[in-house]
Write a protein that binds this DNA or RNA. Structure first.
Lengths: 141, 141
DNA sequence: TCTGTAAATGATACTGTGTATCAAGTGGAG
DNA sequence: CTCCACTTGATACACAGTATCATTTACAGA
């Protein structure tokens, strides 16, 4: 049913997880999103593709992807419902306007040096990071 | 009832918000926490100090503090219930172990250069940031 | 290709976090 | 001291996310 596997699907299998229809569908929805998507939106789009996939499996899959650093839940505006961001190459960076909640993405975080320093000093193995800046966007300044 | 005002309380008043008993109590609980606290823990500790403070006010206050960048909600382990981190001087950094969910804090993020660069290039005004690393801690490696 | 089995699923009912509402209360400017 | 917009507490509610478990399925090994 899925003719080709995305690199993330292969990564999933190599981590010892089965490539089920539910997981591949959630992955497809995430990859086709703009990179910022709520669980409600994932549920809705998954149901459009295959209504037989249950709620629980979608949430289980989001948790699994989070533990694999494929996505990361974060807060954009309200206290409820996280927004999931894709972590291409294990990292993600954006600016959140604290007035209008607009999200501005950017590249080049320049964190590779500090990553290496932390790994050496704290004896940890870092696989990804999320960097969020807060402030006022150009329209709210 | 509160003999002295913390710098954050003064910041709150200067932003045009009233210094009510509910807000000062939530602030006190947050400042006495280790910097990582869930909404359930805030509710519990607030109730211990003053059981007349309502649930809704606690959540309203957490939202208010978030909009002021005094705290920032983030997800440590599950999809439910964010953990609130204090943002001293407007920033916070930690490492989350994706296996055991332990949180390791560290200083010196070295982000002042990129902050200035982003402000100049994108015409934004940045007031704070949250940097999360994900990976395996020394015990799970 | 077939089979066995542990992993994963879908359905359902449930838990509990966070919210809407609104009458009553209060901080703080003047 | 007074006034009033802001804030509160109580209550009932909505609904996101979870526990449970019988059923199904991916895929390793034969």
């Amino acid at each position: 049913m899925f003719t080709e596997l995305s690199p993330r699907a292969i990564r999933l299998r190599e981590a010892g997880h089965k490539l089920t229809n539910a997981r591949l569908t959630v992955l497809k929805v995430l990859e086709e999103s703009d990179g910022h998507i709520t669980s409600a939106e994932v549920l809705e789009k998954v149901a459009q593709i295959d209504s037989s996939i249950g709620r629980a499996s979608v949430f289980r899959t989001l948790d699994l992807f989070t533990s694999l650093s494929i996505i990361r839940p974060t807060y954009i505006n309200s206290s409820v419902t996280p927004t999931y961001v894709m972590m291409p190459d294990g990292h993600h960076h954006h600016i959140v306007c604290t007035n209008c909640n607009r999200v501005i993405e950017f590249e080049n975080c320049g964190l590779s040096a500090i990553t290496a320093e932390l790994e050496a000093r704290l004896h940890v193995k870092l696989t990804g990071h999320l960097l969020e800046f807060y402030g006022l966007c150009d329209k709210c300044i």
